[in-house]
């Protein structure tokens, strides 16, 4: 029997696209078009001075950032941004790990009570708690300095001295960030079979050895993705710094980049701050943030096997 030369292919139905349509439209208008606009703006002189007659200026904004007038500001902000993300991530991971290990002690019968209290900083809306911290840390009339004063300690410039301000911001950020890490680590710890520790004890290993040879290796699969995604998230953080210090304290002559400014807060002020409204420069900054945060996310996604999932 001769096969027909042309098998009529079943036409793929179009109804799946109707399911996709609402989401795709929203993505188009809120992510893709703004993304394209950001790339375009980054190469223009769109700003308060050129609100009507703005146009293409090539790499000028990037030159300003890397070699020109904004170099000092940018490099200062960038290096603090790196330190900020690194210390915040490692700090909250460490606090989270230690607390998770304490909470994993099954002999402490009321441990769930502590866990519920300890995740409170995550449960509260951070915008509100950051503003609260700002008041508590106020140098002249904040309760913390008042309290220190009552036991004879001189007022600490929590938010008004560059070094102190950085430390305070980190402290608040770790306070916000550790419950997430703690929960993830606790989940990881609880998945380690008890028998491993029993065997370890029979072999006469001490607590540190059990930690090094059982806990850490068993947690390894979650530690790295946690740290990378934490780093990416902290790197792009805005709220903690903007609401606590607005990037300050400031050193003259720069009015835009303060001691605690991150790329995101710096960019926000370049775009919407009272002086410049330099949309082009801000967009160029945005692209740089995207390159850094994006590549970190990419690393994380390939580590956690998201791409494999798609290929299947």
């Amino acid at each position: 029997m001769e096969m027909p030369t042309r098998i009529q292919k079943p036409r793929k139905p179009i109804y799946p696209y109707f399911y996709l349509l609402p989401g795709l439209t929203a993505i188009l208008f809120s992510i893709i078009i703004p993304g394209a606009m950001t790339i375009y703006y980054a190469f223009t002189n769109y700003s308060l001075r050129h609100l009507q007659d703005w146009g293409w200026i090539g790499w000028e904004n990037f030159e300003k950032i890397f070699v020109g007038s904004n170099r000092g500001e940018f490099l200062g902000v960038f290096s603090w941004n790196m330190q900020w993300a690194l210390i915040s991530t490692i700090g909250s991971a460490l606090v989270g790990l230690i607390l998770a290990m304490l909470l994993n002690n099954k002999r402490v019968v009321e441990r769930n009570f502590y866990r519920v209290l300890l995740i409170l900083p995550w449960a509260l809306p951070s915008t509100i708690t950051i503003l609260t911290w700002k008041g508590l840390f106020n140098s002249s009339f904040g309760p913390i300095n008042r309290m220190l004063g009552s036991i004879g300690i001189a007022a600490i410039p929590w938010l008004s001295n560059s070094t102190w301000a950085r430390a305070t911001c980190l402290l608040v950020n770790i306070w916000i960030g550790y419950p997430f890490m703690m929960s993830a680590f606790l989940g990881g710890l609880q998945s380690i079979p008890e028998e491993l520790y029993d065997a370890c004890q029979v072999d006469g290993a001490n607590g540190w050895q059990a930690f090094r040879h059982i806990t850490l290796p068993m947690l390894r699969s979650i530690v790295l993705p946690l740290l990378v995604s934490g780093f990416a998230m902290n790197f792009g953080n805005f709220g903690v710094i903007y609401l606590l210090t607005e990037g300050g304290p400031f050193k003259s002559p720069s009015v835009l980049a303060g001691a605690t400014d991150l790329l995101s807060t710096y960019m926000y002020k370049v775009a919407f701050g009272a002086t410049n409204f330099d949309y082009g420069l801000a967009s160029a900054n945005g692209l740089l943030i995207f390159l850094i945060v994006g590549s970190l996310t990419l690393i994380n996604l390939s580590m956690t096997g998201a791409f494999q999932e798609v290929k299947e």
């Binding site: 793929k12 993304g35 792009g236 945005g286 290929k311």
Partner: peptide, 30 residues
């Protein structure tokens, strides 16, 4: 469902997660 562009669509979905709204704020405003 099976449809044309499914795999690429999924990939784009993942990649779009990398673009935080922080970055595009000027464009969103405009």
């Amino acid at each position: 469902f099976r449809f044309k562009g499914k795999k690429n669509g999924l990939m784009i979905l993942i990649l779009l997660q990398m673009l935080p709204a922080t970055v595009t704020i000027v464009a969103l405003y405009k």
